[in-house]
Simulated scan of single mutants.
Amino acid sequence: MKKEERIRVGISIGDLNGIGSEVIMKTFEDPRMLDFCTPVIFASVKVLSFLKKQLKSSINLHGIDTTSQILDGKVNVLNVWKEPVSISFGKEDPAIGAYAIKSLKAATQALKSNEIDVLVTAPINKASIQAEDFKFPGHTDYLNQELDGDSLMFMITDDLKVGLLTDHVALKDITQAITPELIQNKINTIYTTLQQDFGISKPKIAVLGINPHSGDNGVIGKEDDEVLKPTLEKIRAENKLVYGPYAADSFFGSNAYTTFDAIVASYHDQGLIPFKTLSFGKGVNYTAGLHKVRTSPDHGTAFEIAGKGIADAGSFKEAVFAALTIFKKRNEYKTLTENPLKKQARKPVQRKR
Rank of each mutant, 00 (worst) to 15 (best):
K2W: 05
E4P: 00
R6I: 03
I7Y: 04
G10M: 04
G18H: 05
G18Q: 06
I19T: 09
I19W: 03
G20L: 07
I24T: 06
K26A: 07
P31N: 09
R32C: 03
M33Y: 04
L34G: 00
F36N: 02
C37P: 05
P39F: 08
I41C: 06
V45F: 01
V47H: 02
L51W: 03
Q54G: 00
K56C: 07
S57D: 07
S57L: 08
S58I: 04
N60A: 12
D65Q: 13
T67I: 11
N79R: 13
S86Q: 13
S88V: 11
S88L: 10
G90N: 10
I96N: 04
A98T: 11
A98I: 01
I101E: 05
S103W: 09
A107Y: 00
A107P: 05
T108G: 08
L111H: 09
E115T: 02
I116V: 14
D117A: 04
V120G: 00
T121D: 06
A127Q: 15
A127P: 02
E132N: 13
F134P: 04
P137C: 05
G138D: 08
G138H: 12
Y142N: 12
Y142D: 09
N144C: 11
L152D: 03
T157D: 09
D159P: 01
K161N: 12
K161W: 01
D167N: 15
H168F: 08
A170W: 00
T179M: 12
E181S: 14
L182D: 06
Q184E: 15
Q184L: 04
Q184Y: 11
Q184A: 15
T189V: 10
T189E: 06
T193S: 13
T193I: 02
Q196N: 13
A206V: 10
A206W: 10
I210K: 02
N211K: 03
H213Y: 05
E223F: 01
D225K: 10
K229D: 02
E233Y: 11
K234S: 15
A248G: 14
D249S: 12
A256Y: 10
A256E: 14
Y257L: 00
T259L: 12
F275G: 01
F280M: 11
T287A: 08
G289M: 01
T295K: 05
D298P: 09
H299A: 10
I305D: 04
G307L: 13
K308Y: 06
A311S: 13
A313W: 00
F316H: 03
E318M: 14
E318V: 01
E318I: 01
A319I: 10
A322F: 03
A323K: 01
L324Q: 07
I326N: 02
I326S: 05
K328S: 09
R330S: 04
N331S: 03
K334W: 06
K334E: 09
L336N: 12
T337R: 11
K342Q: 13
P348V: 00
V349F: 02
Q350R: 12
